[in-house]
């Protein structure tokens, strides 16, 4: 049983929902990432989503685009990100780490090499934003062979036919993108999320994480009422951007947001 499944099982028995913060690895500089991951766990994160910077982040809004640009200025590569996960694992054997990024860096590394290196580093799940299940068979097989969950996105536009196909291809959890748009866009509508999650629930027993459009503790709590996990990204990355000049404040500001969300979700 993998860390992701263990995590959701434990939360279920505790009657709690998973809080899943996203930060871009290497933003604003590589040295901050591993300590930040530990601090986020300390503040109440259950799973850490680590963004792999890519030069052409087509599905991301300006906040995460700029995060990728900052990380790439320091040359943060997929290999560097895997090394960060390995370093994180030296002190944290339990918290699941999920990589989120785009396919091309993985293509260049090679599926087998990537899956093997990621497993050795202690990666638990991989989300490639631009890899729908139709094109994912080969990579998913390589990941599963190494005990890593391929995690797929669902969208408001996904109909029953697609939900069925995506849930069949996924393991660990599925990630419902609650907005038609890019990361960091407008706020989500909890009622429509509730309806969509009911539709998704008819196709899968996998936990469902919800992300895109969660701005604050109130929206995190509202989503936690209906989803298994709450993913928060742009709000945190914005804290990085606002404090690029004083990086000692980044960790504190991010953990403050996480702690407030945690408290609101656990009420």
């Amino acid at each position: 049983m993998g860390r992701i499944t263990n995590c959701f099982d434990r939360l279920k028995t505790e009657g709690r929902k998973a809080l899943v913060p996203y930060v871009t690895a290497g933003d604003p500089e590589p040295a901050i990432t591993v300590p930040l991951m530990h601090a986020m766990v300390e503040a109440g994160a259950d799973i850490v989503e680590l963004g792999v910077p890519f030069s052409d982040p087509m599905a991301d809004g300006p906040v995460i685009q700029r995060a990728a640009e900052r990380a790439l200025e320091h040359g943060t590569s997929l290999r560097d990100v895997l090394a960060m996960v390995a370093e994180f694992r030296r002190q944290d054997a339990d918290t699941p780490v999920v990589l989120m990024g785009y396919l091309n860096p993985v293509e260049v590394m090679g599926y087998e090499t990537f899956a093997k290196t990621a497993a050795e580093a202690g990666v638990d799940g991989v989300i490639n934003v631009d890899l729908p299940p139709e094109e994912a068979h080969e990579l998913s097989t390589a990941l599963r062979d190494q005990g890593i969950d391929p995690i797929f996105l669902l969208a408001p536009t996904s109909d029953d036919r697609r939900i069925e196909k995506i849930c069949a291809a996924a393991s660990g959890y599925v990630y419902y993108v609650a907005l038609k748009g890019v990361t960091g866009a407008s706020s989500l509508d909890v009622q429509s999320v509730t309806d969509k999650l009911a539709q998704i629930g008819r196709h899968t027993g996998l936990p469902v994480a919800v992300g895109f459009g969660i701005k604050d503790a109130a929206s995190a709590a509202a989503v936690a009422n209906v989803a298994d996990a709450v993913v928060v990204g742009s709000v945190l990355v914005k804290k990085v951007e606002q404090n690029v000049a004083q990086s000692d404040r980044i960790t504190r500001e991010i953990t403050d947001v996480i702690a407030r969300m945690r408290a609101a979700m656990d009420v």
Binding site: M58, A59, L103, V129, D130, L131, P132, E134, E135, F152, L153, L154, A155, P156, T157, S158, D159, R162, I166, V177, K180, G181
Partner: peptide
């Protein structure tokens, strides 16, 4: 039918665009 020219082409996009 899936848009492949040998190993090339295909449909590598975020899920939101798959139905459109």
């Amino acid at each position: 039918d899936n848009g492949h020219f040998g190993p090339y082409g295909g449909r590598f996009v975020a899920e939101t665009l798959m139905v459109p």
